[in-house]
């Protein structure tokens, strides 16, 4: 089907997130205002005004009531999804890069960038309504990673935190003690900046995308490398289909070089791979800049992509997609 083109952002997209029911799509961009859209028709419902810097990441609670956003203005804000009112704001000494709600939505993991001599850090915060009233102290702070931590997500039963970033290493931390449990095998791992990380619907495995032009699939408990997808371009965004054995990978030539060559050289397609066989299935063209964000609709019938070009494209799959035989 023809994609729906969302023209709500003035700057490159950074992140996309569907709510659990798949009816709402949240988009973050380098302009300061996250948007929320109806995913079926692309109608904009509203914006969340208050950040004063690029918004890097967001997450939404299971009941779709609260939205958490991390921004380069050194704050992480919690919003009321329905009214767009800011509920709380955590202030940090450095830009916030990634946010993720834990199962049960009482905790959130937040990463901050290295900034003005301060190292990058992973923070765990209580985010249930009572705790927010009392204090906004971090429950735990994990430091010791070199470079930016581009993504941090919760592991099974909120027992672990998985982080990945500029040092090309994936790490599993104990969420209780803050101790490092595991690092990925450097032989199997990425060789360049890991730009994105996305969990499967059941949380059993996750996919990482890297500037080394590959995407890799990992087991969330053992950190064993399951699959590798050769993408032939730097990968900025990855997502796993919740219904089929498909993964989608997006990225492209670095944004700083785009203007110096032909559009076709950039490879700004969202490419589908068979998750198990690692074979390319197809691609969706359309963006005229690298793809920075990808998200699957939880019902598996569509996905959206956000690009450096400032557009969000909502795709609903054609009937053919459901008949793909590999």
């Amino acid at each position: 089907m023809r994609p729906i083109l969302l023209k709500g952002h003035e700057r490159p997209l950074t992140f996309l997130k569907y709510n659990r029911d798949g009816d709402l799509l949240f988009s973050c961009a380098k302009d300061h205002t996250p948007n929320v859209w109806y995913s079926h028709n692309g109608e904009r419902i509203g914006t969340y005004k208050g950040h004063n810097g690029a918004v890097w990441c967001c997450d939404v609670t299971r009941d779709s009531r609260r939205l958490i956003t991390g921004s380069a203005d050194q704050t992480v804000k919690i919003w009321d999804v329905e009214t767009g009112i800011q509920v709380h704001s955590f202030a940090f000494g450095s830009p916030a890069r990634a946010v993720d709600f834990a199962l049960g939505d009482k905790l959130a993991v937040i990463t901050t960038d290295p900034f003005m001599g301060a190292p990058s850090a992973i923070h765990v915060k209580r985010v249930d309504s009572e705790s927010l009233r009392d204090s906004s102290e971090s429950l735990r702070i994990i430091t010791g990673i070199q470079g930016r931590i581009n993504r941090a997500v919760w592991g099974p039963l909120n027992k672990t935190i998985i982080s990945a970033g500029e040092d090309a290493t994936i790490r599993i931390w104990d969420a209780q003690t803050g101790k490092l449990i595991k690092e990925n095998d450097p032989e199997a791992g990425h060789t360049k900046n890991i730009t994105s990380l996305s969990k499967s619907a059941d949380g059993s495995h996750f996919i990482t995308g890297s500037s080394d032009k590959t995407a890799k699939l990992w087991d969330i408990r053992t950190l064993k490398l399951l699959k590798t997808y050769a993408a032939e371009r730097p990968v900025n965004a990855v997502a796993i289909s919740p219904v089929f054995d498909h993964v989608v990978v997006g990225g492209g030539q670095e944004a700083s070089q785009v203007t110096t060559s032909d559009r076709r050289a950039g490879k700004f397609e969202a490419t589908f791979y068979h998750k198990i066989l690692q074979e390319e299935i197809g691609g969706v063209k359309g963006h005229f800049g690298p793809i920075n964000a990808l998200a699957f609709n939880p019902d598996g019938r569509g996905f959206s992509s956000g690009g450096e070009d400032g557009y969000v494209r909502i795709h609903h799959f054609d009937a053919d997609y459901f008949n793909i035989k590999v």
């Binding site: 089929f244 019938r301 009937a319 997609y321 459901f322 008949n323 793909i324 035989k325």
Partner: peptide, 10 residues
């Protein structure tokens, strides 16, 4: 129809 057909096929 087409969608459910798709699921069966797969």
């Amino acid at each position: 129809e087409p969608v459910s057909f798709g699921f069966e096929q797969l």
